[in-house]
Amino acid sequence: MSSDTRYVLGVDGGATGCRVAIARVDGTPVARAEGAEANVASDFDKALRHLTDAIGRAADQAGLDAATLAATPAWLGLAGAIDADTCARVEAALPFGSVRVSDDRPTGMTGALDGRDGCLVATGTGSFLGRQAGDERFFVGGWGLQVSDQASGAWLARNMLRAVVDHHDNMGPDSELLRGIVAEFGSVAEAVFFSLRATPTEFARYAPRIIAAASDGDAVARRLMQEGADWVAEGLRAMGAADGEAVCLIGGIGPYYADYLPNALTRNLLEPRGTSMDGAVLLARELAAG
């Protein structure tokens, strides 16, 4: 760490907005700012403008001049930063001498676990799994609904509509959940039309209904939840999770999988200790120290 480094900066950026936090190297908060969407895969130039604006406002709030900001180690966890070239482009465009850009999985896991060892199951609209083991970090999933995001709210709802079609084709069972969905759409065809145009967020709005139906004993809903939990268990094992290892379930869906996971994986459940924003600051502090 250079002798004039006094601050660190963390960024949590996604499809709905970005957040910037500046702290002293000991973790004491100094300033925070929020900005507009910052998904670097969806619109790189727009995301960069929003990031630069929010970083500038946080720096002004903290009273950091250009030289001090340049000496401030920064970690940015950004949606869409899934390849080395994109991360390098963002890093090159920012005013920091020491900067690391990653996707939002490391920041989410580090924040939830507060930098400690353990596993993270992050299932909301999308999903990913993570495991921290000493200096190593492992991840599964998080590649978007088209090819990934198993066990997420969007994935549950899409599979629910698949079950609607299967029953219609005499390939699967009926249930109260499925009858209610068809009645709401008016027909199986309308449910299919919805599936063709729906965004992950629009799919995920049906996830609470699936969770509630499963709790009430609906067989199809329980099967969907079990399939999601089975993928979570398989992913945790693939990352090397051992029986009794700390597991943190976060997101709008995550905690509901506790009843469907093997007891060996829920023996040591942890409440989340922080947010992705906290994780970005903690990783920036590690960058400053190392």
Rank of each mutant, 00 (worst) to 15 (best):
F44C: 01
R209G: 06
P255Y: 06
G251D: 15
V99Q: 00
P255T: 06
D43I: 10
R6E: 09
T125G: 13
G124T: 14
G115I: 00
S148N: 08
L48R: 01
T28Y: 01
W75K: 00
L156Q: 03
F138M: 08
T266G: 07
A70H: 10
F44W: 03
C18A: 06
A59D: 01
L64T: 03
C18I: 02
E271W: 07
R19K: 15
G126V: 10
A238H: 10
L156A: 10
A183M: 10
A246I: 11
L261S: 03
R131H: 12
Q150C: 09
G126A: 12
I250Q: 09
Y256L: 07
G80M: 06
N170H: 09
A154N: 10
L265C: 03
I210L: 05
V188H: 05
A289Q: 11
I82S: 14
V232P: 03
D83T: 01
V188T: 11
T28W: 02
S102F: 14
A93M: 09
A74M: 02
C248N: 06
P173I: 13
V247Q: 04
G14Q: 07
E271V: 15
A219T: 14
G217W: 03
T201Y: 09
V140C: 15
S276M: 05
H50S: 12
G14K: 09
Q61S: 10
D114F: 06
N263I: 08
